[in-house]
């Protein structure tokens, strides 16, 4: 299981929002963020995945059992919530 994200080193939050809503034609209420080191502190690998588009990356949950996926996912959410919204629509 992999979580698609935008690489914040290649795009600003505003550029990512524009790409997601205009190019990918998706709806968004805003953006939250986590850092690579925060992911790695949870033993989650972060990799660039330019196949869909150059600024695309993934947080990799592959190989984890359901309980671990849920726990690490919730921790990432909690970290992102604590940081606050980078952008709200």
């Amino acid at each position: 299981m992999k979580l698609s994200v935008y690489d914040g080193d290649q795009m600003t939050p505003e550029e990512a929002f524009e790409h997601f809503t205009s190019v990918l034609q998706q709806q968004s209420v805003g953006e939250l963020a986590v850092t690579v080191s925060e992911c790695e502190s949870l033993d989650l690998k972060v990799e660039s995945d330019p196949a869909p588009f150059p600024e695309h990356a993934i947080i990799d949950f592959t190989g984890l059992g359901r309980k671990d996926v849920e726990s690490k996912g919730k921790k990432l959410k909690s970290i992102a919530d604590a940081r606050g919204w980078l952008l709200q629509a």
């Binding site: 359901r66 309980k67 849920e70 726990s71 919730k74 921790k75 909690s78």
Partner: peptide, 15 residues
């Protein structure tokens, strides 16, 4: 349904 609850401060969780 699959229930999962996590205390993000203590890492206590149950499923």
């Amino acid at each position: 349904a699959y229930w999962h609850a996590l205390n993000v401060q203590t890492d206590d969780d149950n499923e």
